[in-house]
Design a protein around this nucleic acid. Structure first.
Lengths: 236, 236
DNA sequence: GCCGCCAAAATATGATCAAATTATCGGAAG
DNA sequence: CTTCCGATAATTTGATCATATTTTGGCGGC
């Protein structure tokens, strides 16, 4: 799962020894598992379970958990239980509103700055994405779809907004997996072609518009999947 | 004012669910210090310094730091240094955009739900705020201004959005203190009267508008204070 | 069915190791 | 002789771990 191609500010890649702290790798591991649906909504997460599963010490695991809880990727379920949050219809609403407000803006800013080379990279990511869709590879779809968006937002030169949006994706992730598991990869939202065309022709407003539609489609899909099932998505 | 829980043998409430873990109180402490400007932008924060200063253990301090870093209230400045982030003009721009996008929406949602009693509480907070402004009490201004906004957002029944906005305030906080220290409390933004009136009359759109203006004023004030000084606000 | 014990899990502590910044000292150049 | 620069040592700080302590939830006895 190499998503390190995203040109994001990495404050931990300073030491030339190439060693990342244990808490950092635990965090990245867990984060990817949540973001790409390896952990189902509602699933409980225990410290000691992770200690034995990841072979890490207790303190790093604690810190990674604390961080993910702060980001909303995990929730403190009352007593001392930690679990992946289940997305309610109201939650989808909030996330959808915020995504619609922020992601087109980030896209517009990115459109101003992206060079032809950047767009080529993005097109490659989109090719991976389409391949995953064609083969029904859900994990690949989630990964590459995230990479596609993350790459754009990282190009917007707006780190605070990008980090904020990233956290919203962390909340969508687990449910996206469930939705895909229910409906397959057949009619997934894909305004990416429009978006790429707009970026290439330098049409900032069209890029914004395409992203807005992509976000709206994705939000609608999750909302429908939720109202289709019984209440909040569950791991069944 | 808080009565400490005396570690005495209590046969009835041996499992008092109201006690806060050490990492939690450390977190709240630090958070308040950042939010209300007790820590200046750029100021370094060390784990061991906090351990000795707050009298807490190392692990709770670590977890609180990790949490605050995840929330953007602190930043990992390169190698192993943690400090309060300095707000750049670009940062103000991002924060201003997001606040303008989210806070009016939260206000609108709150306006639908607030009862007369809620509005009374809010009015009391605003009175405290005005008193602080009148006496030039900067700490009081920051505290009550935050309380005013936080109360509204907590009433909006949109926890994810409220948490997101809260993080934006965490980033504004340290610089607000600096701005006030520079300009005093003379002409601070105050669309609160308009806002209260709109809430009372049930005019949702007017409430949104008032909040939008309040946010815009606050953002502009910080932006001007930054461009007035030399570059990012610094403590030294 | 209720109360109290037990085990498991989380919280918290302090020690220990590693890394980095800082301080100091020595040498070379002006 | 003074000053500046670089290298090395020392101190400070962060990361990790093993372990003690507390709490929770379950289980068995009454």
């Amino acid at each position: 799962m190499n998503i390190e191609t995203i040109p994001a500010p990495n404050p931990f890649a300073e030491t030339e020894t190439g060693k990342t702290p244990a808490h950092q790798s635990v965090y990245e591991n867990l984060r990817a598992m949540i973001l790409f649906g390896d952990l189902a909504p509602g699933q409980a997460v225990t410290i000691q379970g992770l200690v034995s599963e990841l072979g890490a010490g207790m303190t790093p695991v604690r810190e990674a958990l604390r961080r993910l809880i702060a980001e909303g990727a995990l929730t403190h379920q009352g007593n001392r239980r930690v679990c992946v949050p289940e997305l309610t219809p109201e939650g989808v609403d909030e996330l959808g509103f915020m995504r619609s407000a922020l992601e087109p803006e980030l896209t517009g800013r990115a459109a101003h700055r992206m060079t032809a080379q950047h767009i080529d990279t993005l097109r490659a990511v989109d090719a991976d994405l389409n391949a995953a869709i064609a083969t029904g590879n859900i994990g690949g779809y989630l990964t590459h779809n995230y990479r596609f968006h993350a790459y754009i937002y990282a190009s917007a030169d707006a780190p605070i907004m990008a980090a904020t949006v990233d956290r919203l994706w962390l909340r969508f992730g687990p449910s996206l997996r469930v939705v895909c598991g229910r409906f397959g990869t057949s009619n997934l939202p894909d305004k990416h072609a429009d978006l790429l065309a707009a970026l290439e022709s330098g049409d900032v407003d069209a890029a914004r518009q395409a992203m807005a539609e992509d976000v709206a489609q994705g939000t609608r899909q999750i909302r429908e999947a939720l109202s289709d099932g019984n209440g909040p998505v569950s791991s069944d």
